[in-house]
């Protein structure tokens, strides 16, 4: 059994409180277990000051004995406080010899992250890897990368932001596709697959590496299908594809993972969601953390997901 667990933290928006949640979950892990923890970030994080808005940002303290992955140049002022575990071109994995607060600037690509994970698994086989992630990095949703997720949801007064939050909640509640279709897709897809059309007798009608909104042949074939079929998409669920599919009632749409739905909805206002949508990779959500700026907003929270509000103390809200 694989004892190495990877947990990714994803926020609906900038300043959704992702790092705060990570820090909170990290502290909870330390209180309840002795398993070594490794923390990294997709791109840069744990900056002391928000580079865009200039306000103070939460800092993650790596406890003595725990590990982290960051960029080489972020370790310049921390000499003597860590021991190096491994190096990966521009990144370093290291174990803290005392409590330290490094700026975390981890891998940006799936390839880099997988290489780092493989190395960490060898060095710390019973480790828990926490990734300060990002919704726009689809690869985080790949089961090879993440075993489970924590989500941070920002609920503000801006309509565009509320749309993002609403679509994230919706994407988390999407069902997993039935096993038969799941097996067909997994047997035929590769790293570069962007779309597949599967007949009702589970035969592959079309397999494409083209981005769906640029794939005229795909659109043509969807329009021509008269019998029920399945469309698998592993690319942004763009406006044009969304529009095309809304005209069809004989298509069962399977998205590779929940991030693809989120991407589509951030591009435009939320319309009526499609009711024939499911996911190839289930959302293994541990919990949803809400940062609610606007108390009047109303949301349907998917029931199977535990929901917390780290910031509010009110009888009307769900408490930790």
């Amino acid at each position: 059994m694989d004892n190495f667990v990877t947990t990714s933290f994803i926020g609906s928006d900038k300043n959704a409180g992702k790092t705060t949640v990570l820090s909170f979950v990290y502290n909870q892990i330390k209180q309840h277990s002795s398993a070594p923890v490794i923390i990294t970030s997709i791109g840069i994080n744990s900056e002391k000051v928000d580079s865009l808005e200039g306000h103070q940002k939460p800092i993650i303290t790596i406890k003595k004995g725990d590990s982290f992955v960051t960029s080489v140049h972020q370790l310049k002022d921390l000499s003597g406080r860590y021991e190096i575990l491994d190096t990966f071109s521009t990144y370093v994995s290291a174990r803290a010899l005392v409590d330290i607060r490094p700026v975390l600037e981890g891998p940006n690509t799936k390839k880099e992250l997988i290489a780092i994970k493989q190395s960490l698994k060898k060095i710390i086989p019973r480790g828990t890897l926490l990734i300060d992630g990002s919704i726009d990095r689809q690869f985080l949703a790949d089961p090879i990368v993440s075993d489970q997720f924590y989500f941070s949801l920002l609920i503000s007064e801006r309509q565009q932001q509320l749309n993002k939050a609403q679509s994230m909640i919706y994407s988390l509640s999407l069902p997993t596709t039935e096993n038969k279709i799941k097996n067909v897709i997994e047997n035929h897809k590769n790293d570069f697959t962007k779309s597949m059309i599967i007949s009702s007798s589970n035969k592959i009608i079309y397999h494409s590496l083209k981005i769906p909104f640029l794939d005229d042949h795909l659109k043509d074939l969807i329009n021509k299908q008269s019998k029920p079929h399945t469309l698998y998409l592993n690319a942004a669920f763009s406006k044009s594809v969304d529009y095309l599919l809304k005209q069809k009632n004989n298509v069962n749409i399977v998205l590779d993972n929940f991030t693809l739905y989120q991407l589509a909805q951030t591009q435009s206002s939320v319309g009526q969601p499609l009711n024939n949508l499911s996911l190839l990779n289930p959302v293994k959500a541990r919990a949803l953390f809400i940062k609610q700026v606007n108390s009047s907003a109303s949301f349907k929270i998917p029931l199977p997901i535990k929901t917390y509000n780290l910031y509010r103390e009110d009888v009307r809200e769900i408490r930790i």
Partner: peptide
């Protein structure tokens, strides 16, 4: 009776 977790602030109605 407030569950504060340092250093995070809290909002109350």
């Amino acid at each position: 009776t407030l569950s504060m977790i340092y250093p995070y602030p809290k909002e109350i109605s």
